[in-house]
Design a protein around this nucleic acid. Structure first.
Lengths: 163, 163
DNA sequence: CACTGTTATATACAATGTTATTGATTTCTG
DNA sequence: CAGAAATCAATAACATTGTATATAACAGTG
């Protein structure tokens, strides 16, 4: 059965990128489910942003993640509920709510940085190892690569693992 | 403001692809809004599939689009409501519902193929024209290109246009 | 210091996708 | 041929994410 999105080339590039992205995220989620971490894959970019940039108000967090502000508000509420984030009113502007990692959040990020993220990064890098040529060919290679061996089959055990 | 998804490289490749895909789709939607076509950008892949492959049952349509069957059922209901699709029981298997373009659907697709899709394809091809090198660099180039000139600024007027 | 406009965030709603389930048919098997 | 198993599509229930809008706080102006 012909894959129409693939056949249509540049015309459906958006649909195709989205579809590949979703599959990668789903794969990464499955991979996280194996390691016993307590939050969804989709929440890690937010945690990583706070780790990299320090405490930020909601709007700047949205900007640094490239997503819309309501999405950040939702994720922050969720992660604060889980005790991973702290939210404080800014002193000089009562509208701003400054988001920062809590102690638990800090610990989770440190563990993830040491044990989890490198594995995912390795798996994805493995998937993309031999890419070359035009973009559409590279995307085809990614799709075929994912079909042949999903991310969790590309896990390399780093030394000093927690497992 | 640092773009965290971009900085994280392969670790967030899924998020990044999804984000770029969504932006491309949103751009394409804006571009369609200018031309006066009556359906959402997201419905065109389904119409294109029927155009390329001819009448298909729901399941095979889902497979050719790479999405789940309930999504196709929903889109088909919508487009049939608009009079663009016909749905007929298969003769040899009463479970199958064969989806095909109606007269109006056929006409819409023909217009789109002549006047709309080439423009979008050109705009996206223009965006991707000078890509080379590793995937992440190409993605960066796409993001930068979209920021510099969104798709609707890349419209090339084909000859024989309807406008 | 009211008044207007702007900014930061929250909320409501729509679009779109997924998985699980159900109902109806068909196909297989003894 | 009867009953079990498989298949197709619809529906339900849920999740995610975006746009539009409402609300609250701030900032500038007469």
């Amino acid at each position: 059965m012909e894959d129409v999105i693939r056949s249509l080339g540049f015309l459906c590039l958006g649909s195709r990128l989205k579809r590949i992205g979703e599959q990668l995220q789903a794969d990464a989620q499955r991979l996280l489910d194996r390691l016993d971490v307590p939050v969804q894959a989709s929440q890690y970019p937010l945690l990583a942003a706070l780790d990299r940039l320090g405490p930020l108000p909601v709007g700047e967090l949205a900007q640094s993640l490239g997503i819309a502000q309501p999405g950040v508000t939702r994720s922050v509420s969720l992660l604060a509920e889980l005790g991973l984030l702290e939210v404080n009113q800014s002193n000089d502007d009562q509208r701003r709510r400054i988001v920062s990692l809590s102690g638990d959040g800090r610990r989770l990020v440190d563990v993830a940085k040491r044990d989890v993220w490198p594995r995912i990064e390795n798996a994805v890098a493995d998937l993309c190892a031999d890419l070359s040529g035009p973009l559409l060919d590279q995307l085809t290679a990614i799709e075929d690569g994912l079909a042949a061996a999903p991310l969790d089959r590309r896990l390399k055990e780093p030394e000093g693992t927690v497992q």
